[in-house]
Simulated scan of single mutants.
Amino acid sequence: MEGCLKGGVVINGTPIKLNPILDLPYQPRLKGSAKSLRQAENLPEVLFWMQVHKGKFHQLDFDRQRIIGNYIVDFYIKKLGLVIEIDGDSHDNKVNYDSIREDYLISLGLKVYRVLVDDILRHMDFAIMGLEDYIVKEYGVSSG
């Protein structure tokens, strides 16, 4: 693509700097749990997945229910080192847990983007635009 960094992506006319984090910790004991979560067909996750899998979102490869350390994240973009979490009611009573988890992910050099279940269910276009805007803001290469 014209104006795109080698092996990179352009979103809304902005070249995106890749930030692959290649050596992430992995707990094999969570493999069964991750598989169960993928098969559970959580509606917001499935709807989001339908928008982003197979390169539908700017040719980026998404992993669903990816194991990182002792945690399983909703979605992960390897090329960017970006975790995407879909937050619903299950997060209401886990503020401390979510904070510790997010701090851990950030300590690995990852970024974390959160989107609300309601946005996925009622405003998918805006949820996708919000993700694009976040990526441009955090990874965009200015031309000046």
Rank of each mutant, 00 (worst) to 15 (best):
L121M: 15
D92A: 09
G69L: 12
R38A: 09
G88Y: 05
L22W: 08
T14K: 12
D118Y: 15
R64N: 04
G69T: 10
I120P: 03
Q59Y: 10
L22F: 06
Y104G: 12
A127D: 02
Y134C: 02
Y26C: 00
D133T: 12
R114F: 15
H58L: 05
M50P: 01
V115W: 11
L47H: 15
L82D: 08
G55A: 05
F57Y: 10
V46P: 06
F126T: 07
L82R: 09
L82G: 14
G81K: 02
K111I: 01
G130Y: 00
G7H: 03
R122Y: 14
H53P: 01
D119Y: 03
H91N: 14
Q65D: 02
H123K: 14
V136D: 00
M124V: 07
Q51S: 15
G3R: 13
S36W: 04
K54S: 10
D61L: 04
Y71I: 12
L116I: 09
G109N: 09
R38K: 14
H58V: 10
E102R: 13
V115D: 12
M124E: 04
I72M: 01
V73Y: 04
M129H: 02
L110W: 03
D125G: 11
D118N: 15
E41T: 06
R114L: 12
S33K: 14
I16P: 06
I86F: 04
N42S: 14
S90D: 11
D118M: 14
I86K: 02
M50C: 06
R101S: 13
L80K: 10
G140T: 01
A34P: 02
E41A: 12
K56P: 04
F48I: 11
E132T: 03
V73D: 09
R66F: 12
K6F: 11
G130D: 04
N70V: 04
K94W: 07
A34T: 07
A127E: 01
G144K: 09
P20G: 11
E41H: 10
I86N: 01
L116W: 09
G55F: 04
Q39L: 15
Y71H: 15
I72A: 01
G81Y: 00
R122T: 10
G140E: 00
V83E: 06
K6Y: 14
L60N: 01
V115A: 06
V141T: 08
V10K: 05
